[in-house]
Design a binder for these strands. Structure first.
Lengths: 204, 204
DNA sequence: CTCTTGATAGCACGACTGTGCTACTTTCTC
DNA sequence: GAGAAAGTAGCACAGTCGTGCTATCAAGAG
């Protein structure tokens, strides 16, 4: 029943990803309001009809574009987490994956910021954002927990509160790095994050 | 030459502020894309023509609305800074003024976030945002400096780096408090910020 | 009074929007 | 071969957008 007959070049999910990446390019160039059906279709080198074949509505398109951002960041983070090396520096590198330290992550963060703002008035996007935010927040708390268990952070720390603080540092750095790249270049952002983790260890 | 003859109810600046506040209400309800000339005029209880009399273009309207947000936050902060009491807790309260801890500040932060995102693709808004960001960043650094001088923070701290970190915590908390209010209620945000300042004192 | 000017009101235009819809092409199954 | 289905293309519609523009109204200046 699969692939009954078509100019099937790639599988469906792959095609949707390609189109969603065209959405990113448009959003980066012209912002979310510039991501009209026509503009995205032109950017993707296809037609309105084809685009609407894959995404019935504009909301669905934006929704999928945001899902993809989150999914990719997550995949990158998990790859780093599964890599070798000592645990503590590895956790630092996992956290760094959420920062806009290179062009690819910069693009993702810009799209994330634009869609986060839009989520203030779009319930469907808000639900997505909440899920990913809860996930990252939970991960930050876990990191603090692990650091304490590893002796890389003071034992008397309030884990919940420190998780919240780490999460704030992370997103704060992300916003600043993406909005004022010259004031907070990648190396500086990395340095601040590392200093924050170090401060959890050095101590009374 | 001033006020040659008019149904002059209030002075010009006051009128522009009223209209800009209508912009906020619309932005909070429908987001920046919902802030059309017609919508804002309706919200303000006036006409398109009247609105365009005070703001020649839509960009000018949004620009002024953002200016007003920044101006108000600044005025509030300066009022707290000029108030009495011990220096260190007072600095904490000044920093708290930038967080969305009540309805008024929540509105301002929502508008700030929406316009920050739009500033990614609007050079005029970007210039505004950069100015206010540089100001807050500078203030954060000054706070660290003062804390060190007052003996409320460790002397060996890297002031520049700690200023950057405090600034990240501040904006991170602002974003989280406004996007996920139930996960980060006002008291909790205040607690995290206070803990951050306390962590600059307690020490190796 | 008239004249001038601030302020308001809202129509008109062209551009752009999302989406419903049909027509067409390509490739598979039978 | 015929038929079906996946995918592409883009027109048509109703609606919203920003802004140019003119008309009107209120009130102080002369």
């Amino acid at each position: 029943m699969l692939s009954r007959g078509v100019p099937r070049i790639v599988d469906a999910d792959q095609r949707r990803r390609e189109l969603a990446e065209a959405v990113w390019r448009v959003i980066r160039r012209d912002g979310v309001p510039g991501a009209s059906v026509r503009t995205v279709a032109r950017e993707a080198g296809t037609s309105m009809g084809a685009l609407r074949h894959w995404f019935a509505t504009q909301d669905e398109l934006l929704h999928f574009a945001m899902t993809l951002v989150m999914e990719r960041a997550r995949a990158r983070a998990e790859a780093v987490a599964a890599s070798g090396g000592p645990l503590v520096p590895r956790l630092l590198r996992v956290l760094e994956e959420t920062l806009p330290l290179d062009d690819e992550r910069r693009a993702e963060t810009e799209v994330w910021l634009a869609l986060t703002a839009r989520a203030l008035v779009d319930p469907r996007l808000a639900e997505l954002r909440d899920r990913s935010a809860a996930e990252l927040h939970g991960f930050c708390t876990q990191v603090v927990q692990v650091l304490v268990a590893e002796g890389a952070a003071r034992a008397e720390l309030d884990v919940g509160l420190e998780g919240e603080r780490l999460y704030a540092v992370l997103d704060g750095l992300a916003v600043h790095a993406v909005t004022r790249p010259s004031a907070l270049p990648p190396d500086r952002a990395r340095e601040v994050l590392a200093a924050h983790l170090a401060a959890l260890r050095d101590t009374p």
